[in-house]
């Protein structure tokens, strides 16, 4: 145990206040999602006297959450597949190849991690508009693939670096071609890394706002986040229904987070913690 009694008390107090403030807005949202708008207006902090589950059904109906959640899922899955398929071989090559050219490629991917969306958003939008790719779900997934794959490449590269080269050499001695070595030796060993990548990329694609709101403009193909954004505003009137929609959109993410906390936290903090 570190620290004396006084500092432990201080630490526990701080932990209490911090947990409370992190949870307060979430608890308020869930609580008020079950109240009528009149009840919310009279006291947002009061517990619901009666559980108005109908907020959820009317949010589902009025906001057409069903189709938009489906679009979010489609985009997330497409992005996960494309990132995993393109980033894994790339990560493997970057882990194995030495020399100036590959160092430059590594440097290039690092640089794109910090590039602001604003630096490529405008020409990209007007090019896509010309090509008829605006309002296309696969086109949005393609943009996400470009945005999220550098992160995936660097995470997977650390997994590839941990694989002993002797394993590949053994496969080569047995006459395996490079792609066979990759599929049968490397890929199975990167599986835990791929799970983390899939979770983080899926989360980012589900939650993404700027690209989705810019490139998806028809109600018939928006994601749940864009649908929610378009329907609500600072001066929304039906907060009960709005919060019910918010809870519905966030719930799948929170459930997966509770189940796979380690992958979430390790994946999102990877690259941030230096030894």
């Amino acid at each position: 145990m570190i620290g004396d009694r006084w500092s432990r008390t201080f630490a526990l107090g701080l932990i209490g206040v911090a947990s409370f403030s992190s949870l307060l807005p979430i608890v308020l949202a869930v609580m008020n999602a079950l109240k009528t708008t009149v009840e919310i207006g009279s006291n947002p902090l009061a517990l619901p006297t009666q559980l108005h589950w109908e907020n959820f059904s009317s949010a589902w109906r009025n906001a057409q959450l069903g189709p938009s959640l489906l679009h979010s899922a489609e985009i997330a899955i497409l992005t996960i597949v494309m990132v995993c398929v393109t980033a894994t071989p790339c990560a493997y090559v970057l882990a194995r190849q030495k020399g100036k050219f590959w160092r430059f490629i590594t440097f290039y991917f690092m640089a794109t991690i910090t590039v602001p969306v604003q630096l490529y958003l405008y020409p990209l939008y007007f090019i896509f508009a010309k090509l008829g790719l605006v309002n296309s779900i696969p086109a949005v997934a393609l943009i996400y693939t470009a945005m999220f794959s550098p992160f995936a490449i660097f995470l997977l590269r650390t997994y590839a670096l941990a694989i002993p080269v002797a394993l590949e050499e053994a496969a080569q001695v047995d006459g395996a071609k490079p792609w066979q070595t990759f599929f049968y030796v490397i890929l199975p060993m990167m599986r835990p890394g791929l799970l983390t990548v899939a979770i983080i990329v899926g989360l980012n694609a589900w939650n993404e706002f700027v690209i989705a709101v810019t490139f998806l403009q028809n109600d018939s193909n928006v994601t749940a986040i864009v649908r929610f954004y378009n329907l609500t505003g600072q001066y929304s009137t039906d907060w009960g229904e709005m919060l019910a929609a918010a809870v519905t959109i966030v719930l799948p993410i929170v459930v997966i987070f509770v189940l796979l906390q380690r992958q979430f936290i390790d994946g999102m903090t990877s690259g941030a913690v230096k030894s």
Partner: peptide
């Protein structure tokens, strides 16, 4: 992990 669009609206409405 909560979407920025949702967090923004919750703070507008509830805070």
């Amino acid at each position: 992990i909560i979407a920025v669009a949702v967090t923004g609206r919750i703070f507008q409405g509830m805070i």
